[in-house]
């Protein structure tokens, strides 16, 4: 097996808050191979976004990465000095955020913003930079791109804005794109378009992607592998088809069962009882135990990661084949 593009091991990110140390990312490990799309799934507050920012070294105080390692092609990124990390951001690892209305600067033309992103990593003449920007914008499906470089973000629709943001991430043909819920703020029909384009982009360019989402449906249409996060930890990880068809962790099976598309028409929607625990007061054992129908004394100790072929899970009472979740 070839070495992975990105290897995250035991990544831990903590925030010092008034209520105490908040461990938003708690010993997260996963790998992403070249050309692979990994779906990082979890509820709001499960730590998936913070994981993305931790990889890029973009955690603002009072937060900081307190442990673990992130290796890109073998190069350690945790603890890398600012300048060296900046050379990687946007160049080798790019990021797309949730809401393009919040991420693009409203008072700079998109040509100016993309130009800044280009010049962060390359010396390019103005004419050549514009040519390159227009080419990338055209590739993400923006018509008449050369002319629209002088337009401002508010002159684009939500879907077009997100295409611009994706184009900015593509400028330097990065090895990895971290996409943090990039379709959440969009209409369903636009979501589908963007998903289709991202899919073909990944296939064409061979870049890897971490697709962060709370939406299992989007992830299932895109990801090769899925990692499920709960309360800062990865609780289950494996090939997408396997995890979705035959979940082992009871949180994953609960999530799948609560998908509206799986409900019988007219029947009540299934939901996971209770709410995620506070990250400053985690139970000593399995964090999901208070909400789990199968929890018992064994769940008061932290379940170890159990490897089963290509997949891993952390559950004392994994869901068995044929068992109703």
């Amino acid at each position: 097996m070839t070495a992975p593009l990105l290897a995250v091991e035991g990544l831990t990110t903590e925030f010092a808050t008034k209520a105490g140390i908040l461990r938003a990312v708690n010993g997260v490990s996963f790998e992403v191979a070249r050309g692979e799309v990994m779906g990082l799934v979890g509820e709001s507050g499960s730590g998936k976004t913070v994981t993305g920012f931790s990889i890029l070294g973009l955690i603002d105080p009072p937060g900081r990465v307190t442990g673990g390692s992130v290796r890109l092609d073998g190069q350690e990124l945790v603890g890398l000095p600012g300048g060296a990390m900046r050379a990687i951001r946007g160049k080798r690892i790019a990021m797309v955020f949730q809401d393009p209305a919040m991420t693009l600067n409203p008072v700079l033309s998109i040509g100016t913003q993309m130009g800044l992103a280009i010049r962060a990593h390359a010396n390019m003449s103005e004419a050549k930079a514009r040519q390159h920007m227009a080419a990338v914008l055209t590739r993400v499906g923006i018509p008449d791109a050369a002319r629209r470089l002088d337009a401002f973000p508010h002159q684009f629709s939500g879907g077009m804005r997100q295409r611009v943001a994706i184009a900015m991430a593509l400028l330097h043909a990065p090895d990895l794109i971290i996409a943090d819920e990039p379709t959440t703020a969009l209409d369903v029909s636009i979501q589908a378009q963007i998903l289709a384009e991202v899919k073909s982009l990944v296939a064409e360019t061979g870049m890897a992607m971490i697709w962060i989402s709370h939406d299992l449906a989007t992830v299932s249409s895109l990801a090769h592998r899925i990692a499920v996060m709960y309360a800062g930890r990865i609780v289950e990880q494996g090939p997408a088809v396997a995890v979705l068809r035959q979940p082992r962790h009871r949180y994953t099976s609960g999530l799948l069962a609560s998908l509206p598309s799986r409900a019988q028409p007219g029947a009540e929607l299934v939901q996971i009882p209770g709410a995620p625990p506070s990250l400053t007061a985690l139970p000593p054992g399995c964090a999901f135990a208070p909400r789990c129908p199968r929890a018992d004394r064994a769940c008061e100790t932290l379940p170890a990661m159990t490897r089963e072929g290509q997949r891993v899970h952390a559950c004392h009472h994994p869901v068995e084949a044929g068992e109703a979740a």
Partner: peptide
């Protein structure tokens, strides 16, 4: 997020502040 996005694109702090 505007600033975070600009930093994620690898902009220098100088460009983030100045532009």
């Amino acid at each position: 997020d505007t600033i975070k996005f600009a930093r994620a694109a690898g902009l220098s702090e100088r460009a983030v502040l100045g532009r």
